[in-house]
Simulated assay, not measured.
Amino acid sequence: MLYDKKLTASRLRELRSEKGFTMQEVAKKLDIKNRSNISDIEHARSGLGIDSALKFSNLYNVSLDYIYGLTNNKDNKNLINTNKLDTVLKTGITYNGKTLTSTDIIALKAFLQGLTSDK
């Protein structure tokens, strides 16, 4: 695993507490059907995939690096929400002077998911 699940869990609990949200409220805001999924993440029983991490970072207005414990800086200036990710990848990223194809984007997103999933 490339990140510390316990630190991530602790930060998510802390951020939820700072906002005064219940787990049920967070589940509803993130469109997660079961509150127990939030509990599993906040108690390090489940890993945190990139899609969920983006939702949490948008909700709490912090960076992904902070959530994953890669920095102590909560600054979210580089935060990309999930709705903009495909657009950024299609228009803002080039390799050898060429924009990414749909296949490239799928592969890149799968790679990013792999970086943040349980090993």
Score class of each variant (00 low, 15 high):
L12V: 03
L12K: 01
R13N: 06
R13K: 13
E14M: 05
E14N: 07
E14R: 06
L15Q: 03
L15A: 03
L15H: 06
R16G: 01
E18H: 06
E18F: 02
K19E: 08
K19N: 03
G20D: 10
G20W: 02
G20L: 05
G20Q: 05
F21Y: 15
F21V: 11
F21H: 12
T22H: 06
T22Q: 04
T22G: 05
T22D: 05
Q24A: 13
Q24G: 09
E25M: 04
V26F: 00
V26P: 08
A27H: 02
A27W: 00
K28Y: 05
K28I: 12
K28F: 11
K28P: 08
K29Q: 13
K29G: 10
K29E: 14
L30H: 02
D31C: 11
D31Q: 10
D31R: 07
I32C: 09
I32E: 07
K33D: 14
N34D: 14
N34M: 13
R35Y: 07
R35F: 10
R35W: 08
S36F: 06
N37Q: 12
N37M: 11
S39G: 15
S39M: 14
I41G: 09
I41W: 04
I41A: 03
E42F: 01
H43Q: 15
A44G: 09
A44M: 06
R45L: 14
S46P: 13
S46E: 09
G47N: 14
G47K: 10
G47T: 13
G47R: 09
L48F: 07
L48M: 10
L48I: 15
G49C: 09
I50V: 15
I50T: 10
I50L: 15
I50P: 15
I50N: 13
I50K: 10
D51A: 15
D51T: 15
D51F: 15
S52E: 06
S52A: 08
A53C: 09
A53E: 07
A53G: 14
L54K: 10
L54P: 15
K55E: 08
K55H: 01
F56R: 09
F56N: 08
F56H: 05
F56L: 08
S57M: 06
S57P: 14
S57Q: 04
S57T: 13
S57C: 08
N58C: 14
N58T: 09
L59T: 01
Y60C: 08
Y60G: 11
N61Y: 00
N61Q: 12
V62N: 04
V62F: 00
S63K: 04
S63R: 02
S63Q: 08
L64Q: 05
L64E: 10
D65H: 01
Y66Q: 11
Y66C: 12
I67M: 01
I67L: 07
I67S: 02
Y68R: 01
G69E: 03
L70W: 04
T71V: 03
T71E: 07
T71Y: 00
N72H: 02
N73Q: 05
N73C: 06
N73M: 00
N73W: 01
K74S: 04
K74F: 01
K74W: 03
K74L: 07
D75R: 00
D75Q: 08
D75T: 06
N76V: 03
K77R: 02
K77C: 04
N78E: 02
N78G: 13
L79N: 11
